[in-house]
Amino acid sequence: MTELVVTLDLDGVTDKAGLMDRCARALRLPGWFGRNWDALSDSLRDRTVWPEDAAERGLLLVVRGWRPYATARPEEWRTAQEVFTEAVDRTPALSVALALGGSSQ
């Protein structure tokens, strides 16, 4: 069985709040998701809140359209990358890939 692929499209995201909203939507996180770095880290590592079938199959999160956000908010983007990296390091069933192409539009 292949891992579940989820696209996190950051096209048009200009701040942390927008990033958190996109993460919540893409990953279908519960309403209690705190929309902060710690909550994102916890959610990425907690397979019980992953989309259906991802816990069994594994999860590949493909981040698209991230370059404008990274340029506009470099410190926030560094923090996001640290959160992604830590989650991957602690969760063998999780992979995060930064797409080099454009957004889905």
Rank of each mutant, 00 (worst) to 15 (best):
L10I: 12
D11E: 15
D11T: 15
D11S: 15
D11F: 13
D11I: 12
G12F: 11
G12A: 10
V13P: 08
V13W: 04
T14M: 12
T14E: 15
D15S: 09
D15I: 10
D15V: 00
K16E: 13
K16G: 07
A17H: 10
G18P: 07
L19K: 01
L19H: 04
L19Y: 09
M20A: 08
M20E: 08
M20H: 05
M20W: 00
D21N: 10
D21K: 06
D21P: 04
R22Y: 05
R22C: 07
C23D: 00
C23A: 15
A24I: 05
A24Y: 07
A24R: 15
A24W: 10
R25Q: 14
R25T: 15
A26M: 04
L27F: 07
R28T: 15
R28Q: 15
R28I: 13
L29Q: 00
L29C: 01
L29N: 05
L29T: 07
P30Y: 06
P30M: 10
P30C: 08
P30F: 06
P30D: 08
G31Y: 02
G31D: 14
G31T: 12
G31L: 02
W32H: 11
W32Y: 11
W32T: 13
F33K: 01
F33D: 10
R35Y: 14
R35G: 05
R35V: 09
R35M: 12
R35T: 10
R35Q: 13
N36K: 13
W37L: 02
D38M: 08
D38Q: 11
A39Q: 02
A39E: 01
A39P: 03
A39T: 07
L40K: 09
L40G: 04
S41G: 15
S41R: 14
D42P: 01
D42Y: 03
D42V: 12
D42G: 10
S43Q: 03
L44T: 07
L44D: 01
R45Y: 06
R45C: 10
D46K: 10
D46P: 06
D46S: 15
D46C: 06
R47G: 08
R47T: 09
T48E: 12
T48M: 03
V49R: 04
V49G: 06
V49Q: 05
V49H: 01
V49I: 06
W50E: 05
W50M: 07
P51D: 01
P51I: 01
E52D: 13
E52P: 00
D53T: 14
A54H: 00
A54G: 08
A54M: 09
A54I: 05
A54P: 07
A55P: 01
A55Y: 00
A55V: 00
G58A: 09
G58F: 05
G58L: 07
L59T: 04
L60G: 03
L61I: 02
L61V: 09
V62P: 03
V63C: 13
G65M: 05
G65W: 02
G65I: 04
R67C: 01
R67F: 08
R67G: 07
R67I: 03
R67S: 09
